[in-house]
Computed example of a mutant assay.
Amino acid sequence: MKILLIEDEKDLTKTLKKGLKEAGFNVDVAYDGESGVSLATSGNYDCIILDFKLPKMNGLDVCREIRRNKITTPILMLTVVDSVDMKVKCLDAGADDYLTKPFSFSELLARIRALTRRAKSVPTQIQVADLTINPLSRTVIRGGRKIYLSPKEFDLLYYLASNQGKVLTRTEIGENVWGINFDTGTNYIDVYINYLRRKIDKDFSKKLIHTVRGVGYVFKVE
């Protein structure tokens, strides 16, 4: 498996590259944001490890640019700030998970494995009623109309639709959409479900997102 590491701290980069190679990964390194975007959009990577603070272009802008180029490779963002606001910014920019510095190498490997497992299971397209979801182009169409979603809204919709008919708990949704260290004490899920309902269900007679009181949510045709 091939990993792109975008990190400007030379000592940390050297340590991570050595550890990842010993774990069986091939590793390319970019030391600034612009080089990271160039490599990410021209190479074929299984996972991208992206530092938040970078020369030339910060991690959020790098992440957004990668997603604007229709690159769906899982992105793990590294940050030194452990705050809800920072986590939301990273996820909304298109990151799939985040890890706060300092971190253990074993946890980094666990995050990488979880992200790559999820990426391998992506089908070409999901069709539910008049809703079409294309995970490769990250486009959503309902009733012939294109629906514009933020990166995290898309991830949430894709996970719900991939489990059509299955009642999903908030814990399951949090871990699979926001990452294995998702804080179950937040209301992220309910907030994003409301975002999706306004975009996916509000103007359509057949509702797809349903609340299961005391449990979570289920995606199905009424």
Rank of each mutant, 00 (worst) to 15 (best):
K17M: 09
S38D: 13
G19H: 08
E22F: 13
L39M: 12
N26D: 12
K18S: 04
A40D: 11
L20A: 00
F25Q: 03
L39I: 11
A30P: 00
G43E: 15
G36F: 02
A40E: 08
S35N: 13
L20C: 03
V27Q: 01
I48L: 11
Y45V: 05
D32R: 07
E34F: 07
V27T: 05
G19M: 12
I49W: 00
S42H: 14
V37W: 08
D28Y: 08
A30W: 04
Y31W: 05
Y31H: 09
A40L: 10
A23D: 09
L16A: 01
L39D: 10
G43Y: 12
A23C: 06
G36C: 06
G36L: 04
D32E: 12
S42M: 09
S35P: 04
A30Q: 05
A30G: 07
V37F: 08
D32C: 15
A30D: 03
T41D: 09
Y45H: 07
I49K: 05
S38W: 14
I49E: 05
C47V: 09
K14P: 01
G36D: 01
A40G: 14
T13H: 00
D32Q: 09
A23Q: 06
L39S: 13
I49G: 02
K14Q: 09
L20R: 04
K17E: 06
Y45A: 01
K14M: 15
K21W: 05
D46Y: 07
L20V: 02
G24E: 07
T41P: 11
C47K: 00
E34S: 11
D32A: 07
G24I: 08
T41Y: 12
G43C: 08
V27W: 01
G36T: 03
T15R: 02
S42E: 12
E34H: 10
Y31S: 14
G43Q: 14
D46K: 14
G33A: 05
E34Y: 09
T13E: 00
D32P: 05
D28H: 13
C47G: 03
I48M: 11
Y45W: 06
I48P: 01
N44M: 09
S35F: 09
L20Y: 00
S42K: 13
A40K: 12
L39W: 11
Y45D: 02
G43R: 10
S38L: 08
G36I: 04
G24H: 11
G43I: 11
Y31Q: 11
E22C: 09
T13S: 15
A40F: 11
L20D: 02
K18G: 00
V37R: 06
